[in-house]
Design a protein around this nucleic acid. Structure first.
Lengths: 137, 137
DNA sequence: CAAATGAATAGTAACCGTTACGATTTGTTG
DNA sequence: CAACAAATCGTAACGGTTACTATTCATTTG
């Protein structure tokens, strides 16, 4: 997702254009990987040492709800990354070393749903963990 | 997994037979679903009000390492259930209402691995969330 | 363009699941 | 049954997250 798309979504929902949101979105646009809330906070604190936890977590939650960011839980911490491509449902290989991801086009749900008649499926999680080619060496 | 199997594994690894471990294992044997550490603790506190967090978490971790319990993270909390069947790799549908599970035989990794040449795959998570037939009604 | 107003943020403390640790008790082994 | 290591207790600390009030800021409107 581009910065322009993100701002379009935000303004469509009457969210204001603030310095914090600009810095946040630029940070995500420039880092193509999953990052923890704390990583984000540490970065934000560089030019704004007094930034509040409230600001970080509230904006991350907002962006996530608006599908500007993708969210997942790794080792008990929430991690976020810029939405890859809103149009296509997909899954991720996630590098446990650097956090970078690789999209997986195949979705296992197609095969599984008929195994679950009588059940109401609300969601699913399919993630692959390991080392990316760069981190192996 | 039966209680006998669990105790065999424990004694093979020189773990002692304590009252707490007996109560814990009986609880898991009697509840065929994922339960949080707190749920377990609350149950244990019924006949042993002074039971320590240390005891709960240490034993859950031990059981999990020995593959007596299966572990997953739901909504930021660790959940545990008795190991379904140690022999076969499988995945779960998990009811978000009652925690009960249904095994899914199909594993998506078979199809996906050749999409990931150059990557070192260490693990994966595939879980389906929703309502089971009983909780729908 | 200035005042009004509601959103956004700062500063800080509380919360909750989990982990840690010294002191004590318990299970097992010889 | 003595001795020793394992297990537990009681309690405090920890880390990520959430919550709250006062203040600041972005936008709207006269």
């Amino acid at each position: 997702m581009t910065l322009d798309e993100a701002w379009r979504i935000l303004s469509e929902h009457q969210f204001k254009r603030t310095k914090n949101r600009e810095t946040l979105l630029e940070y995500f646009a420039a880092h193509d990987k999953y990052m923890s809330a704390m990583e984000v906070r540490n970065f934000m604190a560089q030019d704004n040492p007094g930034i509040s936890y409230d600001t970080i977590y509230r904006n991350l939650a907002t962006f996530s709800e608006l599908k500007i960011l993708e969210e997942t839980e790794l080792n008990g911490e929430r991690h976020f990354r810029m939405q890859c491509d809103a149009k296509n449902h997909h899954h991720h290989f996630i590098c446990t070393e650097c956090g970078k991801t690789r999209s997986i086009s195949h979705c296992p749900m197609e095969i599984v749903t008929d195994e679950l008649s009588g059940y109401e499926v609300e969601g699913h999680k399919f993630e692959i963990y390991g080392k990316c080619p760069i981190c192996i060496t």
